[in-house]
Nucleic acid binder design. Structure first.
Lengths: 156, 156
DNA sequence: CCGTTATAGTTACAGTTGAAACCATTTGCA
DNA sequence: TGCAAATGGTTTCAACTGTAACTATAACGG
């Protein structure tokens, strides 16, 4: 067995980054790990991508949004929303109509089938969130909520 | 101007997710925003992708790693590491040799050119981290560090 | 009105990504 | 030994992503 590898250079010379204590890196790892865990739950079972699920989640809360409004609320760009909607409409999970008085806009709603999926996926997502929070005590949970609120870019 | 849109269904009926207060979603937004900001700094200037930078960062700390060890330390999969290394070696930023006594393994090190890039990018990354932390007071910073430590998956 | 500019949404293209198959080498063990 | 399984690494293929170009409709300014 090879000996445990040691940092090979004096930090003063090059000041290498310690990735595992670097905040943006930690955020990326934690975020990807939990998102992937949630996605695994519904990806195969419902043939539903992350972007599609996010679109469904906002349509569950707000009726009749346009694609642009969905993009704002999901922090996705309009191309991603357009593609997610194409799949969702094709699969009969979202109903798309045209706005009265502005033929450019679509008017989007979950279909019955869409609601049926939503009502299965939403509890699974909440459960994963609980599992993540279970690693923290009550005080830490409160601080995390507060901190993320401050770190979120203002437009979201 | 259209009236502010209201939630259209009673929460009790379908319990839709409030994305903007959903922890995994917040993490994803914050993480992507900050990672993108950092990446923009060096992406164009050095023609260096995020995956390549991560590989360089671990090679700055540990000499002579194999590709597999790089993958472990960066939390990237081996395919991504293989491709990042191909570009880095091609660009003369990483030297790749073959391990004595195990011809499957490579032995990786930053080249002089690699170090030169590292020594420019690392301070930029640290600066971005400081800007992120500047949104928090000292107490929040301490809690965030503690919390992320607990949320990081054990293997990283 | 009519031409310019802006907006909603889609399409095309090129680059990126991940899963699985693949090759070469090494290890384990009968 | 020698052969099956494991390991390090690359390649392939299909899906996904972002940017820019495009179409259609609406808003604006003279």
């Amino acid at each position: 067995m090879p000996a445990k590898r040691q940092p090979a250079r004096p930090p003063a010379e090059h000041a290498p980054l310690e990735l595992e204590h670097f905040l943006p890196y930690q955020l990326s790892i934690v975020s990807n790990t939990v998102s992937q865990a949630i996605a695994d739950d519904y990806q195969r079972r419902f043939d539903l991508g992350v972007t599609e699920w996010r679109v469904m989640a906002v349509l569950a809360r707000f009726d009749g949004l346009s694609a642009r409004e969905v993009a704002e609320r999901t922090a996705m760009d309009k191309v991603a929303v357009s593609r997610a909607l194409a799949r969702l409409v094709e699969a009969g999970r979202v109903d798309r109509a045209t706005h009265d008085g502005d033929k450019r806009r679509s008017v989007l709603n979950l279909s019955e089938a869409g609601w049926a999926i939503h009502d299965q996926v939403a509890p699974m997502a909440r459960q994963r969130e609980r599992e993540l929070l279970a690693k923290l005590d009550a005080e830490e949970q409160a601080w995390l909520e507060r901190i993320l609120g401050k770190l979120m870019p203002p437009e979201h």
